[in-house]
Computed example of a mutant assay.
Amino acid sequence: MPIEENMYKRVELTALGGPEVLRIVTEASLPEPAPGQVRVRVLSAGTGFTDTIIRQGQYPGVKDKPPFTLGYDWFGVVDRLGEGVSSVELGQCVADMPVIGGYSQYLCVAADQLVAAPSGLDPAEAVCMILSYTTAYQMLTREVHLQRGQRCLVHAAGGAVGSALLELGALLGLEMIGTGSQAKKALIEGFGAQFIDYRNESVSERVAQLAPGGVDAVFDTLGGQSWSVSYHCLRKGGRLVAFGALQLTTGQETVPQLLLGFSKLLLLWRLLPDGKSSSFYNIQTRRKRYPNDFKEDLAALFQLLADGKLHPAIAECASLDDIVEIHRRLDSGDIAGKVVLDCTR
């Protein structure tokens, strides 16, 4: 909680770099909403790989220069209304995905950006719905068209988006296969998926055993080299959806290798008469193009959560004061599920 009345904490990115560039800032007074804005008391903020690449200066969608507040998504309660706002009410639960700004106890945001949520949701579970589950839901329902019983391969299945794909896929009646490390085997299998140990097994050989003839869809956040393997795991008529380049930031892939991957993904493979297809998904690009889809999909996920049909994998609930250590762990890739910031602490 704020140290004194009207004071609040936020996490500031002081420079581009490693976790050590993050610091806690205590503000002496609460922000005031401008006309058309509301002030929100943030209950929870998500953390994840995307925050780390923003911290490193490698996220193409962020042009802001430090210092600024990090934090891709948040869930909170409307605390104060700005002039002219009638679309939300005081005390209403709301959420947004601003890309930066979420690691804060209070913030001001345009009212028309907000997505309303049912009351009574657990804030830690609710914030998982915003970036992680909406990414998974849109890829499963808007990027591909799948029928019950079809098979999907999910890379990095023990992470926040990967585990969301597994749970939502099972809810849709799909057969899921997930790659991950041995440390994340129990989590992956806990969602009913078949596990592939990518460090000690050949992914393509194991997919051939588990899905003779190939899978119907692959969701791959790893990068260009992995996309080539994933494409060959598809059956005729299957679709590869790439949505990240994790191995570039970890040093396992170079920029030229990634660019070659993009040329295959978006051009060369589309020229092949093999019946397969490929695309790249980015949640922010899609939100800008189809803002109503984002609001509808997130609202649907909030309702599924309220109905008890979703149980996101939360590795830990930490405080804003723990942010440097949390980012060290995010960099190491050893987190199973999602670490959520409890912004009330």
Rank of each mutant, 00 (worst) to 15 (best):
L310N: 07
S230N: 06
E253L: 15
G190D: 13
Y290I: 13
E253W: 10
V161I: 12
Y133H: 10
D73M: 07
D112K: 10
L90R: 06
P35Q: 03
L172F: 13
A117Q: 03
A300D: 12
G18R: 00
Y133K: 15
R39A: 01
R80K: 12
V255C: 09
A126H: 00
A208S: 11
M176V: 03
Q138F: 07
T47C: 06
S202Y: 14
I53A: 04
Y198H: 14
D79S: 07
E205S: 14
G337Q: 09
I323V: 12
V38A: 07
A217Q: 06
C317V: 12
V77R: 05
R199H: 13
T47K: 00
T249M: 12
V229G: 04
M1D: 15
A34W: 01
P35D: 02
P31L: 00
F280M: 02
G238H: 00
I283N: 04
V109Y: 00
C93Q: 10
V109A: 08
I3L: 15
L70H: 04
L341Q: 11
K236M: 15
V77H: 00
R39Y: 01
M1C: 15
L301S: 12
D197C: 08
S163F: 02
G275A: 10
T285D: 13
F68P: 00
S181N: 09
K276L: 12
R148G: 11
A124I: 09
G169Y: 09
R239G: 07
V229N: 07
G275S: 13
M129N: 11
S332H: 08
V127K: 03
L248C: 05
G158E: 09
R142P: 00
Q150L: 05
G178W: 02
H311Y: 06
R329P: 00
T135Y: 09
L210R: 03
R199K: 14
I24F: 01
V78Y: 01
V77P: 01
A34G: 05
K236Y: 13
L305M: 13
E167N: 06
D216K: 10
K295G: 13
A186T: 12
G190T: 08
Y231L: 00
Q147C: 01
C233K: 04
S226Q: 14
E4L: 11
A299N: 12
P60C: 08
P66S: 02
P212E: 05
G158K: 03
E296T: 15
T135F: 05
